[in-house]
Computed example of a mutant assay.
Amino acid sequence: MTTEDLGSTWSSRACPVRPLNDGCLAPMPGHWLALTEEGFVRITDDDQWLVGPVELPEETYEDIRDIPDRPRRGLHTSRDGRFAAVVSDYGQFATVVDLDEWVTVLDLDRDWNDNELTRYPLAFLGEGETAKVVAATDWNRLDVFDLPGRELLTDREIPFPERGQPYPEHYLGYFLGALHPSPSERLLVTDGWVWHPVGIPLAIDLAAWLGGDRYAAEHPRHLADRDDTWDTPIAWVDENTVALQDANGVELWDAGTGRRTGMFTGPAGRMWGHGGLLYVAAEAGLEVWDPAEGSRIGVLEGFTPTAHRDGTFAELRNDQLRTWTTAR
Rank of each mutant, 00 (worst) to 15 (best):
Asn240Cys: 10
Ala208Trp: 10
Thr60Gln: 02
Ala84Asp: 05
Trp32Thr: 00
Val103Met: 05
Gly249His: 02
Phe40Asn: 00
Arg226Ser: 12
Asp109Tyr: 12
Glu239Cys: 09
Tyr61His: 08
Gly23Cys: 15
Asp225Glu: 15
Arg13His: 13
Leu179Cys: 02
Trp10Phe: 14
Gly262Lys: 07
Leu252Gln: 08
Leu20Gly: 01
Leu321Arg: 00
Thr265His: 11
Thr137Cys: 05
Arg65Trp: 12
Leu122Gly: 02
Leu206Ile: 05
Gly74Gln: 02
Val103His: 04
Leu188Lys: 12
Asp138Arg: 07
His170Tyr: 12
Val198Phe: 05
Gly211His: 05
Val280Tyr: 10
Pro19Leu: 05
Phe40Gln: 00
Gln92Glu: 10
Val194Asn: 03
Glu157Gln: 15
Arg270Pro: 03
Glu251Pro: 00
Ile234Phe: 12
Glu169Ile: 11
His222Asn: 14
Ala34Asp: 07
Val288Asn: 02
Gln165Tyr: 14
Met28Tyr: 09
His196Asp: 12
Pro267Ile: 04
Ala14His: 14
Ser184Glu: 14
Ala85Tyr: 14
Asp246Gly: 07
Leu99His: 06
Trp195Cys: 12
Glu239Gln: 14
Thr3Asn: 07
Trp236Glu: 02
Gly164Asp: 11
Thr130Leu: 00
Glu151Met: 03
Leu321Thr: 00
Glu151Phe: 06
Val299Ala: 02
His274Cys: 01
Leu153Trp: 09
Asp213Glu: 15
Ala178Ser: 07
Ala26Val: 00
Ala123His: 10
Pro201Ala: 02
Thr95Trp: 14
Val51Ser: 05
Leu321Phe: 01
Phe313Ala: 00
Glu239His: 11
Ser12Lys: 06
Leu108Ala: 06
Asp310Glu: 15
Gln48Leu: 03
Glu293Tyr: 01
Ala131Asn: 02
Gly276Asp: 09
Thr2Gln: 09
Pro57Gly: 10
Glu185Val: 01
Ile200Ser: 01
Ala123Pro: 12
Leu20Ile: 05
Leu223Cys: 11
Val280Arg: 05
Gly30Ser: 10
Asp146Ser: 15
Leu202Val: 04
Val133Asn: 15
Asp310Ser: 14
Glu218Arg: 08
Leu35Val: 05
Asp143His: 08
Pro305Phe: 02
Trp230Ser: 09
Gly249Gln: 04
